[in-house]
Amino acid sequence: MLTMSELAVEVDALGKKFGSFTAVDGISFDIPVGELFGFLGPNGAGKTSTISILCTLLKPTSGTARVAGYDIVRERDRVRRSIGLVFQELTLDDYLTAEENLRFHAVMYGVPRSEARARMQPLLEMVGLADRADSLVRTFSGGMKRRLEIARGLLHEPRVLFLDEPTIGLDPQTRTHIWDYVDELRHRESTTMFLTTHYMDEAERCDRIAIIDAGRIVAIDTPSNLKASVGADTVTIETSDNVVAASEISVELGIIAEPKGGTLVLHVPDGESFIPRIFSALTVGVRSVNVRRPSLDDVFIKYTGHDIREAEASSSDGNRQMVAAFRKTSNR
């Protein structure tokens, strides 16, 4: 039995190779009970592989992990009974009603009929589908289906809820709704949640996030600590002559300005009070100035050396390779 001080998820040197391609490269982390933990990284970074291993859908090629206190390889069925899953792809039966989908789930997870009935209504209410319980799922919008999946994932009262890109492909309004439900859920049930995302604003909502890139965890901390670790505000200026401006900034202020796409980028501890000093140091005309507090984007760049979107573009080959291998071994 887990207590508050215990760990919902323990991961030790976990690795997964698909042939010669390393999808997960010896990662380790723990998630205490009740935490909302986020995995942030571009597509192909190893997020889905990791989540699939923790959910017992894939076998690791090295390392160990425990979920809800159970070993993911040796105690597979116990792990499965202790977790809820919301996948990237929809896994509902379109020809069944919302309630039938839930009932099917309850049977497979051994939830007694009376208990399942008692839990269904409040869950459907929470995800705003109480009045659609008897509608066929095929009449639902993408957002409604996703909400039903979240309700279904919670029906057997899992200790850990895994959400793999729960808002992917949804419109901004629906994304906001889903997050409202996630927040309410944490507030009400204190369920441990593990989610993967490549949206910075979603990572921002987590208690802690791990930044994963090319199969490795490069940083793990609270969003605010991670942002503080970047240490500096980003000042972007556009001048009439960036070359001259860069040398003047370096001579007068002793700061390196990096040219980037027709602008100069500077990292300084306090951006706002730094702006007047730029104006007094420069002889060339300034066209625009922009100050930005560190964001998770900057954190991502600092720890991985590239932008999350660039990473997505460059990793897409590896991703395809991995998806192909994944299909061969597991998606059956």
Binding site: R81, E89, T91, L92, D93, G110
Partner: peptide, 16 residues
């Protein structure tokens, strides 16, 4: 059909 439309996954991850 179940595989193509995803429901197979729901069944395969269940502890049955």
């Amino acid at each position: 059909w179940d595989r193509e439309f995803g429901f197979m996954r729901e069944m395969l991850v269940a502890p049955v």
